[in-house]
């Protein structure tokens, strides 16, 4: 363990920790756009600049390893002036259309502008124009809102191992793009969407469905494979409009295409809405009492005539533990047979 001093506070961190990690450990806020604890340090946004005693110029906290006895200043007039200027420069090449932006309320750039009270901008000039629409069905990519933090590029390479996107061109013309600027064609895990600090990357399914206000967030578990990923359903007007996942979960906030974008079946018009009984070869809608009475009556009849082992039940790996418990209890205690199984073999 090493000890350093940040803003006059003694902080103890393990060897190899960065100054940024040490500051977070001590609950000291340093603004960042390009940092994600789950990714390698990158040093692109320059917002985490701090002053370290003995160093001639401010350095990025995210890429500077903490050293024994280091004295760090995370905020003073000079540092805040630099940070403010960085944000101003970013905003000078940004559409600033927060009133129609999907990300409003959950946007780091917007937060920073608010924090620094940036209404006017000292800088003006040419702005990047990028009119190309990406026709992939999952992810809306608006390169005019991109701040080139590189999180999407890095998550795609470091975490997902796909490298579907990278930086293209140089300087002012730099954008993040799939190879040859074609439409995105990847695993569509949406990891890039989840780490994007601005509105440059958003899920197409959520567009126009509602912003942060009035959204109910419910933590639950993904209904697909057995990984058991923790997901948060964003609900607006009894409809799931978006799925996210928190980084402090067993899946570290990462999801796959099904977990992140595969929720549209929930309110699909094909959903069964009323009990059905086959009458003269055709299904007819009936009320619950009629359906349940009929099922119980037929099962009792078959049980009396052929014995309980003439009845079998298949339970569901999609249903909850509680429902599976009740299902086998029903087959064993109410019907009287051990003929109960589920799809573990398929």
């Amino acid at each position: 363990m090493i000890t350093l001093i940040i803003d006059g506070k003694y902080v103890e961190v393990p060897e190899g920790a960065t100054v940024l990690e040490a500051a977070r450990e001590a609950d000291i806020y340093i603004p960042t756009l390009c940092d994600d604890p789950r990714l390698e340090p990158f040093g692109a946004c320059r917002l985490c600049l701090v002053q370290i005693k003995g160093m001639p110029r401010p350095v990025t906290a995210c890429t500077t390893p903490a050293r024994e006895g280091m004295e760090v200043t995370t905020t003073n007039d000079e540092i805040e002036r630099i940070r403010r200027t960085i944000v101003e420069l970013l905003l000078s090449d940004h559409p600033n259309d927060c009133m129609v932006c999907e990300k409003a309320g959950d946007c780091t750039l917007q937060e920073l502008a608010y924090f620094y009270g940036l209404r006017e901008n000292r800088f003006w000039g040419e702005r990047r124009q990028y009119s190309k629409k990406d026709n992939n069905p999952f992810i809306e990519r608006d390169m005019e809102k991109c701040v080139l933090c590189g999180k999407c590029v890095r998550v795609c390479e470091e975490v997902q191992g796909v490298s579907a996107i990278d930086f293209a061109y140089r300087g002012f013309r730099t954008i993040v793009a799939p190879a040859f600027e074609k439409d995105l064609n990847c695993e569509f895990c949406g990891q890039c969407v989840s780490v994007c600090p601005t509105g440059a990357l958003v899920g197409k399914l959520s567009l126009g469905k509602g912003r942060q206000k009035d959204i109910k967030r419910v933590d639950t578990i993904c209904p697909y494979c057995g990984c058991g990923c923790n997901i948060t359903l964003h609900v607006s007007r009894n409809e799931i409009i978006r799925v996210t996942s928190s980084p402090d979960t067993l899946n570290e906030g990462w999801l796959c295409v099904k977990g992140r974008f595969g929720f549209k079946f929930v309110n699909h018009p094909d959903r069964l809405k009323r009990p059905l009984i086959r009458k003269n070869g055709r299904f007819e809608e009936v009320c619950w009492d009629e359906a349940l009475d009929y099922v119980a009556e037929r099962l009792k009849e078959i049980k009396e005539r052929y014995g309980p082992d003439a009845i079998a039940g298949l339970s569901s790996a999609r249903c909850t533990n509680e429902e599976n418990y009740l299902f086998q209890k029903f087959m064993r205690a109410a019907v009287g047979t051990n003929n109960v199984d589920h799809c573990a073999r398929y």
């Binding site: 052929y306 003439a310 009845i311 039940g313 339970s315 569901s316 790996a317 999609r318 249903c319 589920h342």
Partner: peptide
């Protein structure tokens, strides 16, 4: 030999 089945979510 099996006369009735109750299949839930399969």
């Amino acid at each position: 030999r099996l006369k009735a089945m109750y299949i839930m979510g399969e």
